[in-house]
């Protein structure tokens, strides 16, 4: 796939492991998932993996990533872990938050 030119080069861009925590199929969750997918396709095509965790089904998983707000996007890889909360509607902030775009 095409490699975006604007990727931050200090970060190993091999694979992006992203986790999106939701609690049921809420409007915010769906919105966040849609926003995330679009961003990933635009900037990390072929180099990302999104795991969706529904806390209503797996409440015990909330503790591991210290989830409080819903939806929360967690960048597991590359390290360090980063968290972005909200419906990810501000693409620019998400890119900065994920370190896809330098701050």
């Amino acid at each position: 796939m095409t490699s975006p030119v604007d990727v931050h080069h200090d970060v190993n861009p091999e694979i992006w492991e992203l986790r999106l925590y939701v609690a049921g199929q809420t409007r915010k969750s769906l919105l966040a998932l849609g926003n995330l997918k679009r961003l990933c396709e635009e900037h990390l095509a072929g180099k990302y993996r999104i795991e969706i965790i529904d806390l209503l089904q797996h409440p015990q998983l909330a503790e591991g990533d210290q989830i409080l707000a819903i939806p929360t996007l967690v960048r597991r890889l590359p390290e360090p872990i980063r968290k972005i909360i909200g419906d990810l509607s501000n693409a620019e902030r998400v890119l900065v938050g994920l370190d896809i775009r330098p701050r």
Partner: peptide, 19 residues
């Protein structure tokens, strides 16, 4: 460690409490 963008709620806390 946290960046906010857009609307969210504290359902994570509720889930954890409930659990």
């Amino acid at each position: 460690e946290i960046l906010e963008t857009g609307d969210y709620d504290l359902n994570g806390l509720f889930v954890r409490l409930e659990y």
